[in-house]
């Protein structure tokens, strides 16, 4: 294939791939690199299921081209747990039953990770506002908000 050769860093590991110029980062992550935690809900930036952190910004990977990943740092849900030890957000999502079907969960986890990195002690309003780009058809959001609040206090060591 006459593709574009891209060299990037994903969850701290060096990665290289070839992609077509019109392939999205979402397609590359799932179909070329097998990172199935990145979900496609809408493909048009509306649902947040494909959220990843690109350098230090939360983005929808469906609205980034694979070729744009050259030389960048990408964080996906696959990088959150340390071996068998879940990230506090993952642990609290389980404890609070903040997921049902689960398709939105990786996007919420990454978005919440980005939120807490920038604001370790958010108010409920700040959490709801910060996660407004992530849609969930199952939970009604309340349990997600509680899980993020609880994880935030664990992460602050409170």
């Amino acid at each position: 294939m006459a593709g574009i050769a891209v060299s990037t860093t994903i969850n701290g590991d060096h990665a290289e791939f070839l992609c077509h110029p019109d392939e999205t980062l979402l397609e590359v992550l799932r179909e070329r690199l097998g990172l199935m935690g990145v979900k496609e809900g809408c493909g048009t930036g509306d649902c947040g299921a494909c959220s990843v952190i690109l350098d230090d910004r939360l983005v929808c990977s469906c609205l980034v081209l694979g070729a744009e990943a050259e030389g960048r740092q990408i964080a996906t849900v696959e990088g959150m747990a340390q071996g068998d030890r879940l990230h506090p957000l993952q642990q609290k999502f389980l404890e609070h039953a903040a997921l049902q079907c689960g398709i939105c969960t990786p996007g919420f986890l990454i978005a919440a990770k980005d939120l807490l990195a920038k604001n370790p002690d958010p108010t409920e309003e700040e959490i709801r506002f910060g996660l407004a780009g992530n849609l969930c058809r199952c939970t009604g959001y309340d349990k997600i908000v509680r899980a993020v609040q609880d994880a935030a206090s664990v992460m602050r060591g409170a």
Binding site: G48, R57, L58, V59, C60, V64, A111, L131, A132, G133
Partner: peptide, 9 residues
């Protein structure tokens, strides 16, 4: 404009 995700771009 848009969400947190869109704002970053």
């Amino acid at each position: 404009i848009g969400s947190k995700q869109v704002q970053g771009r």
